[in-house]
Design a protein around this nucleic acid. Structure first.
Lengths: 340, 340
DNA sequence: GGGCTGGCTGCAATCGATTGTATTGTTGCA
DNA sequence: TGCAACAATACAATCGATTGCAGCCAGCCC
């Protein structure tokens, strides 16, 4: 590789000291150098194709202008919007995201965290779903590394959190079904070790209890996937009790699986059974039927998480806070009146 | 923030010079230091919770162990598998990916490239779809920055390329339809400035020409989205000529849009019109009907691109090469016999 | 004309590692 | 005892920037 051009090369060509080059090229120190000297430096810089070295800069200034983003899996459709939101906030502010996937594995998460720590990221956005605490992470936080949680709760940990309002979402779904005359509703719940799906299940229970004439039941899906959704629905349909007339799924993938199961049993949606998802993931509108679902502002979660993080980085410290973004019910074609 | 512990702190605690600490902690220099000294250093290191500073290391060694990955949009479902593939190869080798999205915008791409260049990434994987050349990128390549293209062709540029076999994919789709007795087939083609979709359109034309009794037509979708697919299909159905009995879409999203359009016109798939997609994106099997599509090994494209890149980084130079991965037709429920 | 002020620029330390070379200490052999 | 050889460690330069401080010079005022 041809040796890259450094600040010294520019200094030599412009006939000044490298300190002057540094000052001339940084906007907040530009006024310390004579205008025409600055101009000369600038010309020299782009004659040589000078590209400032951020790692040297980062070493000196002890910040890297990068943030670590740890998620379970980019291939899970709810994460790309979050990641885009993060990027959208970071990029104009000069920050770049280092992305790591964990597949929900604790040890992978820990390794990824360590690896990013070595790279001296200025902070972390953690969107992993599990509840358990990580000693490595706790220690880093105590050492002053800013951390924000996105779309998950922090458990007992003191990190700031950005999440969406799970209670309201489930309530809206229930009200919608109630309006259609549904009385027997089943929640296809997600694993209890995800904070979000556990919250939704709790909200379902209390929500149903608060509605007269409504009875609810819960079937557990063992993962947040279409297959798990289909299995849960199969199980529900195989059961002996009276069938529900509507389903609220833990998330859109589970709903998608449930609809597949219904189709395979010759049960129509929404004529026979209505289905509501959760998240409004990309392409939820393209399901057949188009999915009625609780819209979670995923991109905004990313944006707010990034904002909170950068605020913490700038301030030099964080304070525990919880930001719960509003959700809304998007009514499409997978829900309809209950069959009388 | 509490001051982070440095190699000097460890040296002090272990009672040795920092050079010794460095050698003790790096596997390939460990044998230069006495075994029990090394042990003492190691104990001191984790007593203090020492986290080596990769940016300092990177500065000295002039490599950052990071690679820049530039894609149009993570929210486009074909990219997550590619990104995961890249990560899968990078991570065990100590590299980390810096991810940037461009939304297909030239100037954003250029800015992202510049930004990553400043961060001294050791190489780039470019999965942006456009054909045009970027002077900034060409210059970097000439300066010895390794670059690999993924899922796009390089045009006249000399970069190594990893792509999938577009010709074979279209041929397989055509043969499949031929076997079902389809004679009138329409290709819902993507924009011509994407190398992949252009290749597919060309392959469609030559493929149809080579098959007796088969006639083909092309309708252009103006983007690779469901909406564009639906619009193209609407347009096709509004036309006066005889309707095709089968559709080959430029990609799965276009196919999904086409199926939506069919549904809205009361046309059944596959009974009235068969539809074939391209890519086998995540959840293609969950469409209704489940989509018959050409499976592109997206994850493998990512893996191979990363491999090629790291090879180039290690060798210190790259040679132009093209790796075309095999594709296969995945037959599901969206295709069936032609109506006689 | 001397001294002060202030604008510009240069000098040198610094960030936290790696690594070639020098130094130290020990051992073995003559 | 003296010296070579060698293992283990210390020293110091280096990577490419930023920045506090010092120095220089011009202009101004008295």
């Amino acid at each position: 590789m041809a040796k890259r051009v450094t600040i010294d090369d520019v200094a030599r060509l412009a006939g000044v000291h490298k300190a002057t080059v540094s000052r001339a090229l940084n906007t907040h120190t530009q006024d310390q150098v004579n205008a025409e000297t600055a101009e000369r430096v600038r010309r020299a810089a782009d004659e040589l194709g000078y590209v400032p070295n951020f790692v040297a800069r980062g070493l000196r200034m002890s910040h890297s202008m990068t943030v670590g983003v740890i998620i379970p899996d980019v291939a899970n459709p709810i994460f790309p919007p979050i990641v885009r939101g993060i990027e959208q906030y970071l990029q104009p502010r000069g920050y770049t995201a280092l992305l790591a996937n964990t597949d929900g594995d604790q040890s992978v998460e820990e390794a990824a965290f360590q690896s990013l720590l070595r790279r001296r990221v200025d902070g972390f956005i953690l969107a992993t779903g599990r509840l358990d605490e990580q000693p490595v992470i706790a220690r880093a936080y105590e050492d002053g590394v800013p951390i924000v949680m996105a779309n998950r709760e922090a458990g007992s940990a003191p990190y700031p959190v950005v999440t969406a309002d799970n209670e309201r979402g489930i309530e809206a779904a229930l009200r919608h079904l109630d309006g259609f005359g549904h009385r027997r509703i089943t929640h296809l719940a997600g694993p209890v070790d995800f904070s979000t799906t556990r919250r939704r299940a709790e909200a379902f229970t209390t929500g149903v209890a608060s509605m007269p004439r409504m009875t609810g039941s819960i079937v557990q899906a063992d993962a947040l996937t279409t297959d798990a959704g289909a299995r849960a629905m199969d199980e529900l349909l195989a059961g002996s009790g009276p069938r529900p007339t509507a389903i609220i799924a833990a998330n859109d993938l589970v709903a998608l699986g449930a609809m597949r199961s219904l189709r395979s049993h010759g049960i129509r949606c929404p004529e026979d059974i209505s289905v509501i998802g959760y998240n409004d993931m990309p392409f939820a509108a393209d399901f057949a039927p188009a999915l009625t679902t609780v819209r979670v502002p995923l991109r905004e979660i990313g944006i707010e998480a990034a904002r909170l993080l950068l605020d913490g980085i700038e301030a030099g410290h964080q304070e525990s806070s919880t930001l719960s973004l509003p959700v809304s019910l998007i009514v499409r074609d997978s829900t309809g009146p209950a069959r009388s």
